[in-house]
Amino acid sequence: MTRRAWGLVLALSIVVFAVAVTAGRVAGPPDPEFAFTETQAGEPGAPVTWEPCVPIVYQVHTSRLLGGEGEALAFVDEAVEHVSALTGLRFRREPVGQPFDVAISWAAADEVDELAGKVAGVTRAAIKRYASREWFVSGQIVLDVEVFDRIGLGEEGRAILLHELGHLVGLDHVDSRAELMYRTTTGRLDYGRGDREGLVRLGKGTQSCS
Rank of each mutant, 00 (worst) to 15 (best):
M1D: 13
M1Q: 13
V9S: 15
L12R: 14
S13A: 06
I14V: 13
I14N: 12
V15N: 06
V16D: 13
V16W: 01
V19E: 08
A20F: 00
A23T: 09
A23C: 11
R25L: 11
R25N: 04
G28E: 12
G28T: 11
P29T: 08
D31R: 09
D31N: 15
F34V: 03
F36S: 09
F36L: 11
T37I: 12
T39L: 04
Q40F: 06
Q40M: 07
Q40T: 10
Q40E: 11
P44G: 02
G45V: 00
G45F: 07
A46E: 13
P47V: 01
V48C: 13
T49D: 01
W50Q: 00
E51P: 04
V54Y: 07
V54T: 15
I56V: 08
V57C: 07
V57G: 01
Q59L: 12
V60T: 13
V60N: 03
V60R: 02
V60E: 03
H61C: 11
T62A: 11
R64A: 15
G70E: 15
G70K: 14
E71S: 08
A72P: 09
D77A: 13
A79K: 03
V80C: 03
V80S: 00
V83D: 00
V83S: 01
A85W: 01
L86K: 10
G88Q: 00
L89P: 01
L89C: 02
R90W: 03
F91E: 00
F91M: 02
F91Y: 08
R93C: 14
R93G: 10
P99W: 03
F100M: 13
D101P: 07
I104C: 04
I104D: 04
A107S: 11
A107V: 05
D110C: 04
E111T: 15
E111V: 10
D113K: 14
A116G: 13
K118E: 10
K118D: 11
T123F: 06
T123V: 03
A125Y: 00
A126S: 12
I127F: 05
Y130H: 09
R133H: 05
R133F: 10
E134F: 02
W135G: 03
W135M: 00
S138V: 09
G139S: 11
I141Q: 13
I141G: 13
V142E: 12
L143A: 15
L143K: 10
G152I: 08
G152W: 07
G152Q: 12
L153D: 01
G154W: 02
G157Y: 05
G157N: 03
A159E: 10
A159T: 08
I160S: 04
L161E: 06
L162Y: 04
L168R: 02
L168W: 05
G170E: 04
L171K: 09
D172V: 06
D172S: 15
H173M: 04
V174Y: 01
R177C: 04
A178R: 15
E179R: 04
E179N: 03
L180M: 09
Y182A: 11
R183V: 10
T184H: 08
T185Y: 06
T186K: 09
G187R: 05
G187S: 02
L189A: 09
G192N: 14
G203H: 00
G205S: 06
T206V: 02
Q207M: 07
Q207A: 05
S208V: 01
